[in-house]
Deep mutational scan, measured.
Amino acid sequence: AVSDRLIGRKGVVMEAISPQNSALVKVDGETWRATSGTVLDVGEEVSVKAIEGVKLVVEKLE
């Protein structure tokens, strides 16, 4: 799938994300809905860990 190429890519949080709420991230110039197990604020850099349906699963870039 096209989205599989995004695993391992870096992105930027466009809307705050919490474990209860998905929000938008920008990866390679494209906007995607994403979820995370932690709270992520706007502007934080993230890494794509997986794809669940049409959502990216991201975590904060260390």
Rank of each mutant, 00 (worst) to 15 (best):
A1F: 12
A1N: 11
A1Q: 11
V2M: 12
V2R: 09
V2N: 10
V2L: 13
V2W: 12
V2C: 12
S3W: 11
S3N: 10
S3G: 10
S3A: 11
D4R: 13
D4C: 15
D4S: 13
D4H: 14
D4P: 09
R5Y: 10
R5W: 10
L6T: 02
I7W: 04
I7H: 03
I7P: 01
G8H: 04
G8C: 08
G8R: 04
R9C: 10
R9W: 06
R9E: 04
K10M: 08
K10P: 07
K10R: 12
K10Y: 09
G11F: 03
G11T: 02
G11W: 01
G11V: 03
G11I: 01
V12H: 06
V12K: 06
V13K: 00
M14C: 09
M14Q: 06
M14P: 01
M14V: 14
M14N: 00
M14G: 00
M14H: 04
M14E: 05
M14L: 13
E15W: 09
E15V: 11
E15A: 11
E15Q: 12
A16R: 13
A16G: 08
A16T: 11
A16L: 14
I17C: 15
I17P: 13
S18C: 10
S18F: 09
P19R: 08
P19M: 10
Q20K: 10
Q20A: 11
Q20V: 09
N21T: 10
N21E: 09
S22Y: 14
S22N: 10
S22R: 06
S22T: 12
S22D: 15
A23K: 03
L24W: 13
L24F: 09
L24Q: 05
V25Y: 03
V25F: 01
K26L: 14
K26N: 09
K26F: 13
K26V: 11
K26C: 15
V27A: 01
V27K: 01
V27F: 04
V27G: 01
D28W: 05
D28N: 07
D28C: 14
D28M: 07
D28G: 07
D28Y: 03
D28S: 05
D28Q: 05
G29Q: 05
G29F: 03
G29M: 04
G29A: 04
G29E: 07
G29T: 04
E30L: 09
E30Y: 10
E30H: 09
E30K: 10
E30I: 10
E30A: 07
T31G: 03
T31K: 06
W32R: 00
W32T: 00
W32G: 00
W32F: 14
W32H: 06
R33A: 13
R33D: 08
R33E: 14
R33P: 13
A34D: 01
A34C: 09
A34K: 00
A34T: 07
A34I: 04
T35D: 07
T35G: 05
T35Q: 07
T35E: 09
T35N: 06
S36T: 05
S36I: 04
S36H: 04
S36A: 09
G37F: 14
G37H: 13
T38L: 07
T38Y: 10
T38W: 09
T38V: 10
T38N: 09
V39L: 11
V39T: 12
V39N: 11
V39W: 15
V39P: 13
L40T: 02
L40M: 06
L40P: 02
L40C: 05
D41A: 14
D41K: 15
D41W: 14
V42Y: 05
V42I: 09
V42R: 06
V42M: 06
V42S: 04
G43P: 01
G43D: 04
G43M: 03
G43H: 03
G43Y: 04
E44W: 09
E44F: 06
E44V: 09
E44M: 14
E45P: 07
E45H: 11
E45I: 14
V46W: 03
V46F: 06
V46K: 02
S47I: 15
S47W: 15
S47G: 05
S47K: 13
S47R: 15
S47E: 14
S47N: 09
V48M: 01
V48W: 02
V48R: 01
K49F: 07
K49V: 15
A50C: 08
A50E: 05
A50S: 09
I51Y: 06
I51C: 05
I51K: 04
I51S: 02
E52K: 09
E52N: 11
E52Q: 11
E52M: 11
E52H: 10
E52S: 10
G53F: 05
G53K: 03
G53D: 05
G53C: 04
G53W: 04
V54C: 15
V54K: 12
K55R: 13
K55L: 15
K55P: 01
K55S: 13
L56E: 02
L56H: 02
L56W: 00
L56F: 03
L56Y: 03
L56R: 00
V57A: 04
V57R: 07
V58H: 00
V58N: 00
V58S: 01
V58C: 03
E59K: 06
E59V: 11
E59T: 08
E59F: 05
K60L: 07
K60G: 05
K60F: 03
L61M: 09
L61E: 06
L61S: 08
L61R: 06
L61I: 12
E62Q: 12
E62S: 12
